[in-house]
Nucleic acid binder design. Structure first.
Lengths: 172, 172
DNA sequence: AGAATTTAGTTTAGGCTTCAAAGATTGGGC
DNA sequence: GCCCAATCTTTGAAGCCTAAACTAAATTCT
């Protein structure tokens, strides 16, 4: 191991912070956003696997269903989770196989199906989400309440900016 | 291991029992962070595919290599990208096949290999990163400079909080 | 030196994800 | 009633990703 190249483990965002000045504010902001999210997300995934032998997408799907006792269609899940519908098909299949979710016909439209938590699914999600909530609180524990609320607000503005850039442009 | 510090290292069930109210704030912050990142990331992926027929992981690997002309080892790439080493193996194989990256022996350590951009890889990454930078600026365009810099700073604090929670406890 | 440990990288199995194409159903217009 | 376009879902191919087991090489210990 060459001592001159002795590099501490640095992520992409940290690396860039040292190199170019000036112009690239937005880029640095984006990389930090990405790093921060990835760091938390990866820890959440690890703990979901370790403590519940499950995955983040499965947890997210349960969470989506938990909010609507009557159940929602696959398409609706797809929109809420911001993933493709083909993705939801496979995810649902696995969760049905595990007995956490059930598929039901949607009365009046034979194309669509409702997904709904089973009793077991509700119990399981209750356990998981309680732990999940604690993990998030733990990870963000060093952030003061005021920092938290400012961050929340600014992320709202960032989100709005992105949505504005993505929305169909104003027809003249 | 210090057992008296166990209060912070909550396991699933205790977390449930002890969770005081107020954790919902952190949860909402986390969900917004996740949504915001996912929204941008998904757009970036779409554009990378549309305009350059490539993917975000490929782009990220090129970016990591572009910063270090001499090349870096697979393991170093893995650390910087915060992904598993097995992942880097496959990614590198594909990029080598496309002629954008080359593998070289690391003098003095026959276990390790250096990854380095080829001339073609450098050209290609220059094109991609210019576009990429423009996209980010476009998406975050509605954010004022002061909002941007505050957001950047707060994300830094969030990141520090997460790292603190994850770092090996008590250096007694 | 020789054994034990650590480190670099690959492989494998399984799951996640997207896109594009196809199957099924609905609803509107003729 | 019939066709057509839109909607809901599935399928298949390709790539991304991790954990865990494994090989090979370097380092450390004795």
């Amino acid at each position: 191991m060459p001592d001159d190249q002795r590099a501490l483990a640095i992520d992409a965002e940290t690396a860039l912070a040292h190199a170019p000045p000036g112009h690239k504010d937005e880029l640095r902001l984006w990389l930090r956003l990405l790093t921060c999210t990835a760091l938390m997300e990866s820890e959440i995934r690890t703990r979901l696997r370790r403590d519940f032998d499950t995955t983040l997408p499965r947890f997210d799907l349960l969470a989506a269903l938990d909010r609507v006792p009557g159940g929602i269609t696959l398409g609706e899940v797809s929109r809420r989770m911001m993933v493709s519908n083909g993705n939801v098909t496979g995810l649902a299949t696995r969760l049905v196989a595990e007995g956490l979710v059930e598929r039901r016909a949607l009365p009046g439209d034979r194309r669509a199906q409702l997904l709904r938590l089973t009793a077991k699914g509700r119990r399981e999600f209750a356990r998981q989400s309680a732990a999940h909530e604690g993990w998030i609180a733990e990870l963000l524990d060093d952030l003061s309440p005021s920092a938290r609320s400012t961050l929340f607000a600014l992320l709202g503005r960032a989100k709005a900016s992105v949505r504005a850039a993505l929305s169909p442009e104003d027809p003249a």
